[in-house]
């Protein structure tokens, strides 16, 4: 057990969670690039990937059990708990998704909605805005890896970036980067991930 601790502290830089929001089996290119990314990043980091389309996941129903019945715990009995544990115990989380209808896919949004389980219902003022209080001491930084759809333009990327920046504030986090698989090189994405 002590060896594990040494390994964690010395050899491994970060724990990284990758939420893979690919929604179609046919999108082989996205899968190939994400796998390449994970392989390289795993050389110096502990990476845990969740292929959301292979998991049993339900939509948040807004029941708020996690805020006022079983504080911090989601009432839905599905595979999401593994993701909650991984996300909150990571230093960095990659939200990866092809763009569908101008935004990250509904599969990724499904699990993003449920991350409110990691926040506290109480409201406090942060930078002159109301936000939910932290439930945990530390929250992972986040990065966004996107794959374009045919009609994607720079305005779409700006819209997505702005919304994830807002999400990062509410999640007591920081959006470190937004990378597009078609325009940013794999080396660049890996380099920035390893040096956040």
């Amino acid at each position: 057990m002590r060896n594990n601790l040494v390994y964690y502290l010395i050899l491994v830089r970060m724990k990284i969670t990758v939420l893979n929001g690919n929604m179609t089996q046919e999108n082989i290119e996205f899968e190939r690039l994400i796998n390449e990314f994970i392989l390289k990043v795993s050389e110096n980091n502990v990476v845990e990937q969740f292929k959301l389309n292979e998991m049993n996941l339900h939509y948040c129903t807004g029941c708020w059990s996690c805020w006022w019945k079983t504080p911090g715990k989601c009432a839905i009995n599905d595979d999401a708990e593994k993701i909650f544990k991984s996300v909150i115990n990571s230093e960095f989380v990659v939200f990866a998704s092809p763009i569908y209808a101008g935004f990250t896919g509904s599969l990724l949004k499904k699990i993003t909605d449920r991350l409110i389980v990691l926040l506290h219902p109480y409201i406090e003022i942060i930078q002159k805005e109301t936000h939910h209080k932290k439930r945990y001491d530390n929250y992972p930084k986040i990065g966004l890896i996107l794959q374009r759809e045919n009609e994607t333009d720079s305005e779409d990327i700006k819209i997505i970036t702005d919304i994830y920046k807002r999400f990062a504030i509410n999640f007591h986090s920081k959006l470190c980067y937004v990378k597009i698989l078609e325009t940013n090189t794999m080396e660049e994405i890996i380099h920035e991930t390893c040096n956040i």
Binding site: L107, K109, K110
Partner: peptide, 20 residues
Amino acid sequence: FPLYTDCMPGVVKEFFEKIC
């Protein structure tokens, strides 16, 4: 719709995808 994590709830996004 209610704002869910700074945008539309996932289920609304799915509806948008189906429409598109």
